[in-house]
Amino acid sequence: MLSEAAKKELNEIRQKYPEASAALLPALYIAQREFGHLGADAYEAVSDALGVPKAIARGVGTFYAMYKHKPMGRHIVQLCTNVSCMILGAEKLSDFLKNEYGLEPGGTTPDKRFSLVIMECIGACGTAPAMLVNDDFYENLTEKHIEEILEKYK
């Protein structure tokens, strides 16, 4: 079930568009925030709130990379491994996360503290390699730097 606040928020967004299905992308973000990830119950809630078939909602949700379909850790480490980051050593950082934290791409640590998502270009190429932890950008990364950063996220 969506919280009352979320329902209200969703309804407001719904009013902004000429048709209900146009509100799907923001609605799925809200559901993801409420449920943690998009499972059957989340799609059901969105479908009910907008009056859009569940199949349509799921079709849209599964198209976009930022909707998560399994439970995620408390903090999402989003490491860029695309070209500018790659040629400045991002692959080594990915190995480091695997060896030191047991974080595989797409995986979550057993204590649910971190999930790792490999990103396609986050637009921080001038200061590569770079990553986002939740909404915070970190750039010019080294292994030591990553250790210090992750300390801040409990």
């Binding site: 048709e19 799907l24 992308l25 923001p26 799925l28 973000y29 849209v60 198209f63 976009y64 930022m66």
Partner: peptide, 28 residues
């Protein structure tokens, strides 16, 4: 003007895919 957030699909930079995405569809 309204702000519409993407959701991580590179192809949505293509204009007809972008339109589909604003309309709430798969960005094709």
């Amino acid at each position: 003007i309204k702000v519409k957030l993407g959701a991580g699909a590179f192809v949505c930079g293509e204009e007809t895919a972008l339109i589909a995405s604003i309309e709430g569809q798969r960005g094709m």
